[in-house]
Design a protein around this nucleic acid. Structure first.
Lengths: 199, 199
DNA sequence: AAGATTTACCTAACGATGTTAGCAAAGGTA
DNA sequence: TACCTTTGCTAACATCGTTAGGTAAATCTT
């Protein structure tokens, strides 16, 4: 009897070993340079063994991203137990989400498909900041009466950009389950309205 | 005299031809499957010719993304000429940005590094919606008194998620020129506060 | 116009990638 | 012992980015 179980256990061990090693490689060198051969080297098996456990490389990355979602979920569950008041809880969730992203950037990138080769803009090229400067001008025009500090204005600019970019990313990557593009647009309109009202 | 000019002109023509062909391939098959050899085939030259005009593949993608920024900039300039009132202009900018993203998804993806192999989640896996459901619960808890419609609540959930995800993406991809992570966090806190106040 | 030189372009390769076919050895079954 | 299934490997295929090295044409020099 034990013999079959042992085999299954070994098979599962191999699978989790592959995932663990893959995740370590991702953390060390980024997901862009993860390769099947590197994984094979690390687990000290030949390449085809990996294909006994995963259909392809994408499946491995997918599984890792799922681990990310599960980890995030556990953290959010903790918030839930800790905070009964919905407002406090919402704030905690935001904090948790933020911290999760920056403590586990590899996970976050895998989960939401971030990071292409070619996009490490920084401040070098002015083109990259064109949109920010346009909305900056408009926002400064709106708030020029109620004398808000320079920092506050700067924050508002980024906040505005964030809503737009965030929503677009979510919709574009099909993370939203709203199919109707009219609806998605309404979410944006609402957000923009709320934002402007609060300026 | 003309002979040198012609050569420069030919060289520039080749360069723009490469970019045009590359962009067409990206539109047809996505940037993930763009290859130097496909470009070479399309322009009917051999592979190394491309390296006379671009240092590497990344440089081509980078240049394409710059085209995207320039195109967006032109559209925003149009808004600027059309709307003198800053509030109207800000709304127009938001609309323009949104439309640009969905009319030119390839550009948007290149510009902001979106779209990894492995992230086409959809609704299949419940893990992907874990965060949305957690914040949904909290938000519903907050708004349960002021009887807002189901749609409105749904919008608010996505709006909240968008601010967080948008800001994280922008910071993570170094699109922001704020270096201080404390400051970035303050942008988030401000946004969260404004959002909750408006619920 | 003839020779020298630069330019334009190509073939062919290198190294790395994801993926798979086919085989050998080890282990269990009859 | 004979058979079969599992396990793992070697070796290959196709594709990728990138580059070295050569050839022939175009250009410049005298």
């Amino acid at each position: 009897m034990g013999i079959l179980e042992r085999k299954i256990r070994q098979k599962e061990n191999m699978r989790t070993k592959i995932l663990a090693v893959a995740m370590q490689l991702v953390k060390e060198e980024g997901w862009q340079s993860l390769s099947i051969r590197k994984i094979a080297d690390a687990i000290e098996y030949s390449v085809p063994v990996i294909y006994d456990h995963f259909e392809n490389k994408e499946a491995i990355l997918f599984e890792l991203s799922m681990d990310g979602f599960r980890l995030l979920d556990r953290l959010l569950e903790k918030d839930k137990r800790k905070y009964a008041d919905p407002e406090e809880r919402l704030r905690a969730h935001a904090e948790t989400y933020w911290n999760f992203a920056f403590k586990n950037p590899e996970y976050y990138q895998l989960m939401y498909g971030l990071g292409m080769p070619c996009s490490s803009p920084g401040k070098a090229k002015p083109e990259f900041n064109s949109f920010r400067e346009h909305i900056a001008e408009a926002i400064e025009g709106i708030v020029k009466d109620n004398k808000s500090s320079e920092d506050e204005t700067c924050f508002k600019i980024y906040a505005f950009w964030s809503v737009l970019h965030g929503l677009i990313s979510i919709v574009m990557m099909r993370c939203s389950d709203i199919d109707d593009s009219q609806m998605n647009k309404k979410v944006m309109d609402d957000s923009v309205n709320a934002f402007i009202k609060n300026l």
